[in-house]
Nucleic acid binder design. Structure first.
Lengths: 154, 154
DNA sequence: CCTGAGTATATGAGAGTTCAACTAAATTGA
DNA sequence: TCAATTTAGTTGAACTCTCATATACTCAGG
């Protein structure tokens, strides 16, 4: 009945789990140590910094960072306490909130970015041959495409 | 100074983050829904089930599951509450503890496994061409190898 | 034997995530 | 126009993880 994983698939799957776990841990450790924020918060700041007016609707921001609304609410609450983000009522839609990156938030991001990029290179890009980077891109794109399909179906 | 990511690298990096996040969420959702356990606990049960005598030292188990000792202590405490694992004093070393998989634990694992494997296939293997699976394996192996090197150096 | 250094694990507090309500505003439609 | 539904976002509780610390044991010297 069940299509169990064969030996090769087992090995690949465990490599995959191990590799992604190691990378996530490395990112979190580095950012926590050098910038006192978890990686998830860094991603939020990055997305906000790229938005026009450095502001974005909460839902939009949640979608772009790949997290739930609840998670984003809690996260933005913490970021607000630190003065890195502020909330504004959305003028067009009374239900909506805008998350706005503050000057302090931009500064925190600018301070954190170089060390973070360095870590990303060390953990991933420096380790792979250029052709492997291309392959990885295609693989991840396929995974995302399929997952979106599944989500929409289910 | 900083070697920023170029456009291709940015895209690849974000695909990678998105893909791994989606897979982890899918695994956790499926296991939580169908077997009432997080993926991390499933991995612990699997590793235990593969050990001789279905028993392993806590440190060893922590290393094999790629987690910290503290995390494993907490996790095993929860698994013990459910009756899936029990702790035994290590005969050879009075400081050590053995985590032992119980009959109920084996049953829980057996019940969870088919759905989990199905989810792994759906999220990863069904999505990739055989040659991509091979490439992914090599990529992940390279990442792990490099990360271990870094850990030992730093 | 002891004492001190190192190892194995546990524990508690703090932080982040998830899930399930809950509030409030917009939209639909009779 | 007004109730029903949907959408946006928040909140609180339960759970997991991390970090620092504590406890218990081993081992090597003196």
């Amino acid at each position: 009945m069940t299509r169990w994983l064969d030996e090769d698939e087992q090995r690949t799957w465990r490599s995959f789990l191990g590799a992604t776990q190691l990378i996530n841990e490395a990112l979190d450790r580095q950012l926590q140590r050098d910038a006192a924020m978890p990686h998830a918060y860094y991603v939020i700041l990055v997305r906000l910094s790229e938005a026009p007016g450095r502001a974005m609707r909460m839902s939009e921001l949640a979608a772009r960072t790949g997290g739930s609304r609840s998670r984003l609410s809690h996260a933005v609450a913490r970021l607000e306490e630190r003065g890195w983000v502020r909330r504004e009522r959305c003028p067009a839609d009374g239900r909506g909130n805008l998350a706005v990156l503050t000057g302090d938030g931009r500064a925190a991001l600018a301070a954190a970015a170089p060390g973070h990029v360095e870590e990303v290179r060390r953990a991933l890009f420096d380790v792979l041959k250029p052709e492997q980077v291309r392959e990885l891109d295609e693989i991840c794109t396929a995974i995302i495409y399929a997952a979106d399909g599944n989500t929409l179906e289910g």
